[in-house]
Design a protein around this nucleic acid. Structure first.
Lengths: 187, 187
DNA sequence: TATCTTTTTGAGTGTTTGTTCAAAATTGCT
DNA sequence: AGCAATTTTGAACAAACACTCAAAAAGATA
């Protein structure tokens, strides 16, 4: 029996970039074949169809996203959150800034592809639950719900505001003001 | 010479709903003809093409959005902002909640239709400038930039978080915490 | 009512879409 | 080496896409 001549994860990394930047409806399977170099037959043979390929891409992206969060949280909830938010603000400077794949999916597909939008929603919901857990251990159970909600809304704010021509310093100052309970370094 | 047998603004109100909910790439011109009842020829005769129809829709939407903001601001910057934010949180309860048309456009089209994305970006930028102006008159010039940034990020947060199954009370509590400088009513 | 301009009609344009398939090539197993 | 299972190939499919156009209809003006 013949083995696949390509690495699935390597292909997924490329489709992630496509779907992330252009969206689900904005990306054609021809885009995928030309970017990956795979012929249609190979593509469909190993990934099923467009929807399944999108799911696999979103899944891999969110896995990496969750890993990054976990790595940051070893510094404690407060410090970890500050690191993550600072990273997100810095990301806006990249030339091909594309917000967050999960958030974009949630917004684009809520009405036309509810199944995929719900998947994105569940990833976001899980992320919030993890923030809440980490916050609870450091700031107490009582405040954790509101604090976690604040963090999620701040993240969404950054992810959208990133497209605007705003100074990073202004965004960080605004975050410092909004999430004043975080252990920001004095300046 | 014959007169058009339909009201342009009435048609635009319908295309706004389509583009707003399904996005640019997720909406076909067939969707438009079936929803509006117009035949392709009439549609193209009075609106040009898909891109121009989208621009006209986005323009009308943002005009209404700006009007709503102006109406709220007669109560003063602080009170007005609270009213607008509270409205946005309440909107999330509607069964066909669709975030904000401008924000969705910015995210969806940044890479595939930069011209349209830039239009959305400029609307958002103008909105921020108006918030900044109103805030400056009430809180002073020095704070207005950071405060306006905070308000914009809060709006973006609400617009995305609206898809999540969160309690409105939690969101409002989070806003109250983040934008603590607004004149919230005691509770 | 007759004329002139504009709008509406609805079938039709070529292109792109997601997807399939039989044949050829490739690889693991005996 | 030979067989069997799997993958790759590249042309092809029907459906959906954005858009057009000649002819018919409608309305304003005279």
């Amino acid at each position: 029996m013949a083995k696949a001549q390509f690495d699935k994860d390597n292909i997924l990394d490329k489709t992630i970039m496509l779907f992330w930047q252009q969206g689900y409806h904005g990306t054609s399977m021809q885009d995928v074949t030309t970017t990956t170099g795979l012929k249609p037959g190979s593509l469909y043979n190993s990934f099923g169809n467009k929807e399944q390929l999108f799911i696999a891409s979103l899944n891999r992206y969110s896995q990496r996203s969750a890993d990054k969060m976990k790595r940051a949280m070893v510094h404690g909830a407060g410090e970890g959150i500050i690191m993550l938010l600072t990273d997100m603000v810095a990301a806006k400077g990249q030339k091909d800034y594309a917000s967050c794949f999960i958030i974009k999916t949630q917004l684009e597909l809520a009405s036309t592809e509810p199944k995929l939008a719900q998947l994105a929603a569940s990833y976001l919901s899980r992320t919030k639950a993890q923030y809440k857990l980490a916050i609870a251990s450091e700031y107490g159970e009582a405040l954790s719900e509101v604090y976690a909600t604040s963090v999620m809304m701040a993240i969404f704010g950054i992810r959208v505001y990133g497209y605007q021509q705003a100074k990073e310093a202004d965004m960080l100052e605004s975050l410092r003001l909004s999430l004043h309970w975080l252990p920001w370094k004095k300046h």
